[in-house]
């Protein structure tokens, strides 16, 4: 916690950015049924639990057509 207290001005934006990316990806996963690759059951944990890489991988490889 000390680290967070000392460095909150730098950690907070980082966490916000990560969560924003995760939520954007999660929303997209839930709103669409077709993925170029994988299934919903696969993408939800990937997007939620693998920080940064998960959502990016989803948007680049998994996102299907609108």
């Amino acid at each position: 916690m000390d680290v967070f207290k000392e460095y909150w001005p730098i950690l907070l934006p980082l966490i916000i950015a990560e969560v924003a990316l995760m939520l954007a990806a999660l929303r997209h996963v839930l709103k669409h049924r077709n993925y170029r690759f994988g299934t919903r059951a696969f993408w939800i944990p990937v997007v939620v639990f693998i920080q940064i890489i998960g959502p990016i991988a989803y948007f680049i490889f998994g996102r299907g057509e609108d």
Binding site: Y7, P13, L14, L21, H28, R63
Partner: peptide, 25 residues
């Protein structure tokens, strides 16, 4: 609309923060 701009900006923003933080910590 295909989230490419969003990915690029967020990823580069995260990189931007991580660099000084990693150096410091």
């Amino acid at each position: 609309r295909t989230y490419k701009l969003l990915i690029m900006l967020v990823v580069f923003f995260i990189f931007g923060i991580m660099n000084p933080l990693t150096a410091k910590l």
